[in-house]
Design a protein around this nucleic acid. Structure first.
Length: 498
RNA sequence: GCGCCGGUAGUCUAGUGGAAGGAUGCCAGCCUUCCAAGCUGGUGACGCGGGUUCGAAUCCCGCCCGGCGCACCA
């Protein structure tokens, strides 16, 4: 088996097998937007389903919600997002016209070697640049908002501007008080959600790695600031071993060090025990959907990288053979930043009371980039067999189908039997389909590329004793089982094999 | 957003000024076979728009999309 997969290989299978492809393609495409096809969407949906099961349903302390994509612009002003900029803009202090720094410098005939904030600032000052419209004084260069703007209502002016959310978190913070009142949840507890978010990236890049519309799954987990280091379930993660790259190690050019989370916590690597716990839970889940531990590492954000709301953030990075180490999950300690800001701005009492004292809970935020995780899962699963055939060795729980049903011959009785078994398995809530290519080899190869873990074949013996064979995707071995046992056998196999 | 390179069927690819070809996939049929390999037929492409030319997939310009580098990255 070979494993040196390139991005071209992934793009190719994605297109050829209906996983994912450029959006609006018949009109030339639109940078930063991709459509998931039948197979890709099933895989993605199952990743999300498993995430939801693992982080919401299987726990008693996390409540799932689905807040609106569009929130009041006041939310984004309070959260600090409106004041966070990325493209470099300068504004005239007199007439309020806005100019892109690059264009402005060009128009003024100022040559510049690089467009960093620093050199733009310097050259504007050194050349004593003034507003080209009114000659007024220019503001310091600032970075332009990466939120996607739209308008609601009949009038399209400043007052009708709204933003498409760049993160889901705010929809959870603004509902914090309501959720805690409705559920009666006591600290510590979390709110979770997943869905589309939008960011006006300057340069979408790397297939589906940097998108303008993408899916994230987030948990905002609230803890008592006095209890940050008492996490009863920490023993469930303290033995997890992972490469950790602290900010000090990065600054000193040291390599990441393999550590147990418990040891790292004791060394003081994490901002709190709860922070370490959520790192552990996140790593556990990523491994459970098929990402190898050796391809995962933890990298602490340097001070300069920290978001405006974060005290400490760890990225879980995945080693993509064609990109190197890249972030797929971020786990931030947002402290009480958001609840405090919303409380102050809205006037609502988003604090809790303990022993007669008001306080704002601290928040740990694991944030999963679903499209990046999808790409990692596909990349990890992509395998070329000795005979040159491609298989996606997906974990059964994230495979697009549970099984394919293949009639050995393209005869009416074989096809009828296949359809009968298909209906039976669907009644058992298994995701199956019939492949009537008429050549089993073809059906197997196609299913292997889809990542379908099992192929059920109807052969001559089926008509003699009501048995079929189950073929394993990864080994091509077959076992024979009675038709009546299929649902239970497929379920059992999905739990115990990969 | 800047710079460099690129864009021919679903996929891979030939064609560099003079009839767009192949492989594979896909569809229909034959064959009735346990890992894409037999036979017959069929569908299917020059990213978009302008220009040069008798004639453009080919040369020029603009745009779109992609890769890489820079920048940026909540």
């Amino acid at each position: 088996m070979e494993k040196n997969v390139s991005l071209d290989d992934i793009v190719n299978i994605a297109k050829r097998r209906g996983l994912i492809f450029p959006s609006s393609e018949i009109y030339g495409g639109l940078a930063g937007f991709y459509d998931y096809g039948p197979i890709g969407f099933e895989i993605k949906r199952r990743i999300i389903d498993d995430w939801w099961w693992n982080f919401v349903i299987s726990r008693d302390d996390v409540y799932g919600i689905s807040p609106a994509i569009i929130l009041s612009p006041a939310v984004w002003k309070a959260s600090g997002h409106v004041d966070e900029f990325i493209d470099i803009l300068v504004e005239c202090t007199k007439c309020k016209s806005r100019f892109k720094a690059e264009t402005l410098l060009e128009d003024l005939g100022i040559k510049i070697s690089d467009f960093s904030m620093e050199s733009i600032k310097n050259s504007l000052r050194d050349n004593n640049a003034r507003c080209p419209k009114c000659g007024g004084e220019l503001s310091e260069p600032r970075r332009f908002n990466l939120m996607v703007e739209a308008h609601v209502g009949a009038v399209k002016d400043e007052s009708s501007v709204i933003y498409l959310r760049p993160e889901i978190a705010q929809g959870m913070f603004i509902n914090f008080k309501l959720i805690s009142a409705i559920t009666g949840a006591k600290l510590p507890f979390g709110i979770a959600s997943y869905g589309k978010v939008f960011r006006n990236e300057i340069a979408p890049r790397g297939f589906i790695f940097r998108l303008r519309e993408f899916e994230i799954a987030e948990i905002e987990y609230f803890i008592d600031p006095d209890e940050q280091n008492s996490c009863e379930d920490f023993h469930e993660v303290d033995n997890i071993e992972i490469k950790i790259w602290t900010k000090e190690e990065q600054k000193r050019n040291l390599k990441p060090k393999e550590r147990k989370l418990g040891d790292a916590y004791n060394e003081g690597v994490f901002s709190s025990m709860w922070h370490a716990y959520w790192v552990g839970e996140s790593v556990k889940w990523l491994e459970s959907i098929g990402l190898s531990p050796e391809n995962l590492r933890l990298r602490e954000h340097l001070e300069t990288e920290l978001a405006h709301y974060a005290k400490q953030t760890f990225d879980i990075e995945y080693y993509f053979p064609y990109f190197g180490w890249k972030e797929i999950v971020g786990i931030a300690n947002r402290t009480d930043y958001d609840l405090r800001r919303h409380s102050k701005t809205s006037g609502e009492k988003l604090y809790l009371v303990k022993d007669g004292k008001q306080f704002f809970p601290y928040c740990i935020e694991p944030s999963f980039g679903i499209d990046r995780i999808f790409l990692a899962v596909i990349t990890e699963a992509y395998t070329v067999r000795e005979d040159g055939k491609v298989i996606l060795r997906l974990h059964p729980k994230v495979a697009p189908y549970d099984a394919v049903i293949v009639p050995l011959l393209k005869r009416p009785e074989f096809i009828a039997k296949a359809e009968e078994i298909n209906r039976m398995l669907k009644r058992e809530r298994l995701a199956t389909y019939v492949d009537v290519s008429g050549r089993v080899g073809k059906a197997y190869v196609k299913a292997d590329e889809f990542g379908v873990p099992y192929a059920i074949t109807i052969d001559h013996e089926t008509f003699e004793n009501d048995t079929v064979t189950i073929r394993f995707r990864d080994t091509r071995e077959q076992i024979r089982v009675p038709i009546t046992e299929l649902p239970i056998r497929i379920r059992e196999l999905s739990k115990t094999t990969v």
